[in-house]
């Protein structure tokens, strides 16, 4: 009998430890598949953040480095400058890249750093137990906004891909989601493109992926997907926000 589905070589055999219904697993798998399909597992170094994905360095089969909170892109910059022939990507949560790491996000893009950054946006700080993130929605209840995010007090959510897309050095910016099979397929395409942009040395590639956090949202996995569609999709600009001519020609 022909085997038509198996674990991707881009991931190790270690079982994921993520909470039930968390979409980190799907995103890991998509990246793993892309690494395998492009045959770059042996040429890629990943940089992990602090947060739920902090342990992702054990799940991918490529070399991995763990960075301090928010610093993954600075670490990736140093890595890429030292190894310009290799592929370097960061895997960061919204709390990591949109809060403490924002300056690095802006400057990495501005420098057209030839790396690929993947942001997993679940509108909350997951690992620390569900606190408000810059991406938390207006009115959303979290441990540090127990009465719902009051935008008068805490400001409005940040849509980072929109900001990054305004910078010349960012040549490819896409915002995708993993809440449905079609979206997952689109997400994989975007991730693949992000790596191809780096292979071609065109500039900075940024992919934002909307994700769920059933545990901290206090919802079931299925309800979480629904909540994402109802609340996050309308707020965050989706699709290919930017692709330069060179990128489109890939």
């Amino acid at each position: 009998m022909e085997k038509i589905f198996s674990r991707t070589k881009g991931l190790t055999s270690l079982p994921f430890h993520y909470c039930p219904g968390c979409t980190h697993g799907i995103i890991h798998r998509l990246i793993g598949e892309v690494l395998e399909e492009l045959d770059i597992i042996g040429d890629t170094i990943g940089v992990a953040p602090v947060g739920c994905a902090g342990f992702s360095l054990d799940f991918f089969s490529c070399d991995f480095v763990g960075a301090a909170h928010g610093r993954a892109q600075a670490v990736a910059t140093g890595m890429k400058r030292a190894l310009p022939e290799k592929l370097v990507f960061t895997y960061q949560g919204d709390g990591d890249i949109c809060a403490i790491g924002t300056s690095h996000a802006i400057h990495t893009a501005a420098r057209a750093e030839k790396i690929t950054s993947i942001m997993v946006n679940n509108a909350i700080f997951g690992m620390t137990g569900g606190q408000m993130a810059p991406t938390t929605l207006a009115g959303q209840i979290t441990a540090t906004s127990p009465y719902g995010r009051n935008c008068q007090l805490a400001g409005n959510p940040i849509d980072l891909p929109k900001i990054i897309a305004t910078l010349d050095g960012a040549v490819y910016v896409a915002a995708v989601s993993v809440d449905s099979p079609q979206q997952i397929i689109a997400a994989k395409k975007a991730i693949k493109k992000g790596f191809q942009v780096q292979q071609a040395g065109l500039g900075f590639a940024f992919i934002s992926i909307l994700s769920t956090c059933p545990t901290n949202w206090g919802l079931s996995p299925v309800e979480s997907l629904k909540w994402l569609r109802q609340n996050m999709l309308p707020l965050y600009q989706m699709g290919e926000l930017k692709a330069t001519k060179e990128v489109s020609a890939l």
Partner: peptide, 17 residues
Amino acid sequence: GEDEVASINMCYGAAAS
């Protein structure tokens, strides 16, 4: 770098190579 924090973390990445 954009600041000292970035610079030392760039060192981290480059040293890891």
